[in-house]
Design a binder for these strands. Structure first.
Lengths: 225, 225
DNA sequence: AAGCCGTTTCAGACTAATTTCAGCTTTCTT
DNA sequence: AAGAAAGCTGAAATTAGTCTGAAACGGCTT
């Protein structure tokens, strides 16, 4: 079960991420409407938790655009209690549910369960690149017969690389997406995980390797067989 | 990466300048809205950090005017927490992000990275000149089949030359843009990199060459095949 | 309490990028 | 044409970024 959180208040966003984590939801967090829309359009999420008041594009705009593009992912809108925005507006735009801040974590979880149940599961089960297959629900990475289990962070790092194949993913991005924006994770954390992943690629005998772009980041590369 | 800071509290402005410096951003500081606007319009900045409450012209006015003139530079607004200015107003005026004082340097840096990158992906993916293509995300320079990887500084130098094709780029400009304003890089540093680049052009068999304008600078030239 | 697993931290090895230097070539000046 | 200034470039020296094994850590399970 994958959840996208779009919320510009970093503190709240991280808190939500924390809650999701504790309940075993894989979570991505972005901090503005534009990124939110782009991430949502990737179609990999089972639920999208969307703040209304956002930089770049409001939550309303995001849902509307999402629906226009025929994306049916369940959307839960968040709004501050004193914002004079109308619940009806949100639902008209195509949102599935609506909740005012502040709220209890339990309520959030309940609503997420509710709207995700409503949908028939149409989630992609795995990501692939060259000879590698990353199972998104079991966290197993396999190549042919062999298979290894990835830890949560290994998984997240690889997932991001596989979702952006052929693009260089900046270390910064990995840090903010895997460790969270206000973490004090250091570059070496990322490096350590890249190292772990390389070891596992090697173990699997994959032709895929992780290329380093110095001072920038990493990208997947499919070496010749 | 060039940053313009518009902030009337001299102490804060200087502190910001210091932080930027430590993180290798080339920085200019001005202390009122009018200068801010003029500097910003010069179009040489990658990010503008703009206080809301300013002498001469408010931050809001500055962004609005900037946008009216079709200047798309990413703007990060600053405001004191107890000012009753509205976040929405700022974003509506065309700012890209918004932060309340006081804030941690780390947060500022993170946001600067975020908004400067954000516009980066709207911007073109590669620069081309004659038979050369410079991939802006992988730092690869290619010509036909062949491709070479450029180091950070090589890349920056070439990028500037390719962004100003047919114009002579003064050595001084290269130094301040690539090494930073306060650097004590010497002309020979630039010369060394020009030399590296020429070698790579030759390796690629490109018809492009780097012409020297004595006592001034360099420019790209597309020789005949 | 002991063991396991995923994660973080650290230090040294390693490697690529960058700077520096020196001698050489080209261009300009007179 | 001679000398001076500016520029070029190969090689060496230095620095900065990255990799990785090992150890420490912390939460969970047995």
């Amino acid at each position: 079960m994958r959840v996208l959180i779009v919320e510009d208040e970093v503190r709240l966003a991280d808190a939500l991420g924390q809650i999701m984590l504790e309940h075993k939801y894989a979570t991505d967090i972005v901090y503005n409407g534009e990124d939110g829309l782009n991430y949502a359009l990737s179609g990999q999420y089972d639920v999208i938790v969307l703040d209304v008041m956002l930089p770049k594009r409001s939550g309303f705009e995001v849902v509307r655009e999402l629906r226009k593009q025929k994306n049916a992912a369940p959307v839960l809108l968040l709004t501050a209690r004193d914002e004079i925005t109308d619940k009806v507006t949100g639902l008209d735009c195509g949102a599935d549910d609506y909740m005012t801040k502040p709220f209890a974590p339990e309520e959030l979880l309940a609503r997420i369960r509710a709207i995700s149940r409503r949908q028939g599961d149409v989630v992609l089960e795995e990501l692939t690149y060259a000879d590698l297959r990353l199972n998104l629900s079991t966290y197993d990475l396999q190549r042919g017969e062999k298979s290894v289990h990835l830890g949560f962070k290994e998984f997240e790092v690889l997932k991001i690389l596989m979702a952006n194949t052929k693009m260089v993913v900046p270390k910064e991005d990995l840090i903010t997406k895997v460790w969270g924006v206000e973490s004090h994770a250091e570059d070496n954390n990322v490096e350590a995980y890249i190292s772990f992943l390389r070891k596992k690629f090697f173990f699997l005998g994959s032709k895929v390797s992780i290329g380093t772009i110095r001072k920038v980041g990493y990208r997947l590369e499919a070496g010749k067989l």
